[in-house]
Nucleic acid binder design. Structure first.
Lengths: 258, 258
DNA sequence: TAAATGTTGTTATAGCAACAACAACAGGTG
DNA sequence: CACCTGTTGTTGTTGCTATAACAACATTTA
């Protein structure tokens, strides 16, 4: 009739992350394939050991995911998937909300007792994390954004964000190449790193990664160039920011002259 | 400084249902209490064994819930709770959506191959489950709702639902007592079960539970009267429905005469 | 009727994987 | 050396997974 193995292999995993056990998932899936079934039928349909079917059905009934008939032998039926997922996510969502309340309470308590922002330098691993953080930075920028970076850094999402905020904040970008439209309000300089002059030697390698300065307050430096092991540093530390603003100044001066 | 035990005892449980382990939760909570911390500080702050702190921090970093400083020794900081909960729920929500798609696919395949609705009688255990199912039934009613039931069954939620749909569908209710306002469009009969006439003897006990008929198609019978072990039967089976519509008719005839 | 057979639902228990907790050790620093 | 960091490996515990065995009951067969 219905082959038990023609469902996505990850499906059980998905359901597990929603709070079900492997057996609960298998039994529920099996019950969806029929109008109703006895424990033994469920055992055959799901592959779950017959003896394990009973406690699992109890658990599913506790979660209101199956209903039980009055007949003997008992017959079981699954509630529609939409309802089931709703019930599961509702429970998790409730937990999430309560957790959020408690956590923000703890967090606020600390934030209140805090004077200046940290003097630390943070790591961001991987190009994905870098892009994500960069997106956050761009979103929260208030006065100006200045970026020197390899084109690889500019994902579609980041280009979109830059376009959106180019009206409100000053945007200046130096990169080897740029695909797609460029807003008029955005200052874009295209420069190959290979044509850097002698006096800036050593800085060239860095163009493979990049520097991003936000509001003259926050700096993100991309130091790993290869796609696989890209690493970025981020800091709001005064000295750190001052150094890279100086570095940025060097580059941008030369770019403007050329 | 901050006592580690002044957070809700269920908080760890909530976070666990969001896919974190106990240690991950403890470490994250601890990190919220400070700007940043070394592994040893986290160990003291969270109570997690020092050696376990390192792998746990790795996991948290994989989930983008903490950032790592470049300094030696490394320092760790938590991302804001709102962001963290967002990330966790987003991942689960994605799984939920994918699971839903797969499950509905399986379900539809079965529904399509199915002729009539089931001829089975289903159990609902406990007053809470009964009320929930009753609420669903009322919500999906299209033409009429008829209920004989003890007042205990009518929770505030159910009264609200009845009020809301009293305009679109015919609503008729027989119950010993009713608190709160009664919509004009709703037919409400107040009858004590004790004054039932001789010819309906034996039906009296049932008033302690109740009968609910929806659209002349679905019937729910509440057979256990006590709060603790209330049990309801539900069926769309033709014979079952016919029997209880007849039973309902007996009662309602007598009620109208009185 | 009595014995044999099969099914349902329950209980006990062994196996297993992930997590939790601890001990030990190399490297670095004052 | 004494101390701290970061890593590794071992052990204990827990909860899910899996199998076996059993009592209760109905059905079949001699």
């Amino acid at each position: 009739m219905t082959r038990p193995s023609d469902n996505p292999p990850q499906l059980v995993g998905w359901l597990k992350s929603l709070g079900m056990t492997k057996y609960e998932a298998l039994v529920y899936i099996a019950l969806l394939k029929v109008t109703s079934a006895t424990a033994s039928e469920i055992h055959e349909l799901s592959g779950v050991p017959r003896a394990s079917v009973y406690p699992v059905l109890d658990q599913l009934r506790d979660k209101d995911l199956v209903s039980v008939s009055q007949s003997a032998p008992k017959r079981f039926a699954a509630i529609p998937p939409a309802d089931a997922i709703d019930k599961l996510t509702a429970r998790i969502g409730k937990n999430a909300q309560q957790a959020l309340e408690s956590l923000t309470l703890i967090h606020r308590e600390r934030i209140a007792a805090e004077e200046g922002s940290g003097e630390l330098i943070w790591n961001i691993y991987g190009i994905a994390g870098i892009r994500k953080r960069l997106a956050e930075l761009i979103t929260h920028a208030t006065t100006d954004i200045r970026i020197i970076a390899h084109s690889r850094v500019f994902s579609e999402e980041i280009k979109d964000l830059l376009k959106q905020c180019a009206d409100q904040v000053s945007v200046e970008i130096i990169t080897p190449s740029w695909e797609g439209p460029v807003p008029a309000t955005m200052n874009l300089y295209l420069k190959k790193p290979s044509v850097l002059p002698k006096e800036l030697e050593g800085c060239g390698d860095m163009l493979a990664g990049g520097v991003c300065i936000i509001d003259n307050k926050k700096v993100m430096v991309i130091v790993g160039s290869a796609e696989e092991d890209a690493v970025a540093l981020f800091s709001e530390s005064e000295g750190f920011v001052r150094f890279f603003m100086r570095y940025y100044g060097l580059i941008v001066d030369w770019v403007r002259k050329a």
